[in-house]
Computed example of a mutant assay.
Amino acid sequence: MQRLLIIFGVVLIGAGLVWPWLAKLPLGRLPGDIHIQRDGFDFYFPITSGLLVSAVVSLLIWLFRR
């Protein structure tokens, strides 16, 4: 459990350090992401971005387990 918490902490610190570059990625604005705006209503569902992030994380986990 301690090791897992340390790894999560390091990942969060790393993400915080590279946030200016991560914010420039087109995640959330990809074709296939649903964004509906109406008066008093805003709905956003990032289908394509979620699939892309899931595929990258799955690939990284698969590579680290080898």
Rank of each mutant, 00 (worst) to 15 (best):
M1S: 14
M1I: 13
R3G: 13
R3M: 10
R3N: 14
L4Q: 02
L4M: 03
L4C: 00
L5Y: 15
L5P: 10
I6D: 02
F8R: 08
G9M: 06
V11K: 00
V11E: 01
L12M: 13
L12S: 04
I13D: 01
I13F: 03
G14F: 09
A15L: 15
G16E: 01
G16C: 00
G16Y: 01
L17K: 01
L17C: 04
W19L: 05
P20S: 06
P20V: 06
P20W: 15
L22E: 05
A23W: 13
A23M: 13
K24C: 04
K24T: 09
P26W: 15
G28R: 10
R29W: 14
R29E: 06
L30W: 06
L30P: 03
P31N: 15
I34M: 12
H35V: 10
Q37L: 15
Q37W: 15
R38M: 15
G40I: 04
F41V: 11
D42V: 09
D42R: 12
D42G: 05
Y44T: 04
F45H: 14
P46L: 13
I47F: 09
I47W: 11
L52P: 00
V53I: 14
V53C: 06
V53K: 08
A55H: 05
V56T: 04
V57G: 01
V57Y: 14
S58F: 08
L60G: 05
L60F: 11
I61P: 00
I61Y: 03
W62L: 11
W62T: 07
L63I: 13
R65T: 11
R65N: 10
R66H: 14
